[in-house]
Design a protein around this nucleic acid. Sequence first.
DNA 1: CTTGCAGAATAAACCGATTTATCTTCGGAT
DNA 2: ATCCGAAGATAAATCGGTTTATTCTGCAAG
Lengths: 357, 357
Amino acid sequence: MRPEDKHRRATIHDVARTARVSAATVSKVLRGVKTVRADNAERVRKAVSELHYRMDPLASGLRGEQRRIIGTVVPDLESPFFGKLVTELESLAEAAGYHMIVASSRESEAREADLAARMNDWRVAGCVLVPVRSERGPGAEKLLDFGMTAVLVDRVSADERFDTVSADNHEASASVADFLIGQQGHKHILLHGATRISKAIRNRLAGFGDRARAIDPGVVIDELLSDDPLETQRAAIRYYFDGQADGHRPTAIFSLSQHSTLLVLSEIRRMGLRIPEDVALVGFDDADWMQTTWPSITAVAQPVSAIAERALTALLARVEGDHTGFPVQYLETCALLIRQSAGQTKTERPRWSGRSG
Amino acid sequence: MRPEDKHRRATIHDVARTARVSAATVSKVLRGVKTVRADNAERVRKAVSELHYRMDPLASGLRGEQRRIIGTVVPDLESPFFGKLVTELESLAEAAGYHMIVASSRESEAREADLAARMNDWRVAGCVLVPVRSERGPGAEKLLDFGMTAVLVDRVSADERFDTVSADNHEASASVADFLIGQQGHKHILLHGATRISKAIRNRLAGFGDRARAIDPGVVIDELLSDDPLETQRAAIRYYFDGQADGHRPTAIFSLSQHSTLLVLSEIRRMGLRIPEDVALVGFDDADWMQTTWPSITAVAQPVSAIAERALTALLARVEGDHTGFPVQYLETCALLIRQSAGQTKTERPRWSGRSG
DNA sequence: CTTGCAGAATAAACCGATTTATCTTCGGAT
DNA sequence: ATCCGAAGATAAATCGGTTTATTCTGCAAG
């Protein structure tokens, strides 16, 4: 008898031997199959704990078509948004008895396709993909080729091949238009975005534009969109403001991404403009620092938890059940957090306007 | 012949049949073993590309003691620091021909131990562990029990069981003392940290204190350390400042973590103190927003890339080579980024700042 | 006292690779 | 012509589970 050799791990056969049953019976007990006599099941459980047996999740899935693994691919892991998304997904997957493997495409579509293929290599049961650009990228293409079941998240619109889940970028941006134009009466607004190619950004753009024109056809909307390097973008902002005669300067800015918000904020400060007196600022995507910086930044907060939960629920439904139903587009509603940089009344300003928590 | 069935993937045997060699030969070709006749190798490669064959990484490692997988466990995935660390680790692991699986212990030591066990289940070749608290946590204990080869990162000091890699917290904090006391001449400094239990924080504390006393034995150092809930900590800061007579107020604050910096900054602003005129601020751990907020925050930047590279290099050295040498402690040097909140001359000052001063 | 049958148990096949031990080949030395 | 050894190829064992097909129970019905 040698299961106690050095560092050799106990296998299902060791357990079987100890419990004096067959490996098949052990397997049944472990997976909760009911056709096992009570005394045998008990002996198996005892042996398992005696030998500290733990199943090898890889060998376990080897025989079947798919393993109890969910693959997740995100464009990056350095932004808190995806970090939080991944954390919640993993938590949900674990609760459902799945392992999760995570990979970052590092904003590269080529790598995205690569990772999709790799998820296929791992025989994952399903895949959560946050595409670099949109649902029509090489990643989704590969998933389709391989016949994998998958859910596309965040940078997507409706798709006829996969379920999609994202924040309701269109509606959230529209409500920013409501707020800035309808409520605050701004007549001239600058939209700033770092990139044109991401689907989410395009939806934010469209959502704001549509509603803005519906509320006030006379509103002037300028757009400053580019994927140039940082310094070029900074220069572009200054150039834009220099070109505006004082009376024709925009009175509000809607920045379409967190990165964009930071950039705009930085340049506004450098130009010596006051927020919100000279120009109001609303950013899409909230961050910790936005409620602490002065002035605190009004921002659209994305419902990360809701997105994660919807994505995994939809995926598991496809994996474990109906594999054929029509693809669904899920849109989760965002919240507009009104702070000092736009809209918050600044009457109470004794020491510093309180309640930043 | 049915490799073209539906969605059945080609296996090594399909390739072998197509190339009219044995599976063993295919395996050799794929792993670059030289003892294969050129024409056979060629036919194998042709078959591989014809059938779009891709090896199953799980089945591949099944037979050996360990698989070409590196496991990584971090306390959370929502902070950019760990996000970046994981990204770099994955990139390096991939370059070395390893897969990487990532998991977040969500700041729980119980879960940390759990994940260590799970990494063992996966038969990873090695494990990078960022412990929740220190190298003497339950995670490291489990790694040791299982006889896994591992490297401990970030929240660690020297250890006699594992290689450790971290920023040189002690030295970096000492250089903050050099800067604030030696160079700027501060006589009364507040240290603020969110937690006492993390090893990194303790090293920062000690590093600052040791150097500070060495430079100027008369310097007054107050410490405000707690793990209380957010609002309690905020109150503690206000209480501390209220208790200080105007002349005895600290003239500089050194916040020991990013979270801490945000908290301190928020409360300083709420109290209406000016930075750096009334109080200077230096934070440990840099973040994007710190260079954009006003005043921009002087901060210690951790060498993430260097840490990642060192960690993976050390781990692979243990995995592939010497498994017996003495554990090494690697300390990577940080950079002090001097900005407006402490030390930087403020020639160009945005005009809207004049309001309160 | 058979027979039938359902519930349990298990031996053996299987998954897709690697590794080992065995078997061919073939060229060169005796 | 014979023998030997090295290079190359391969059948078969192996890894740790799951699944299938078969066997074994025990008990009720005929």
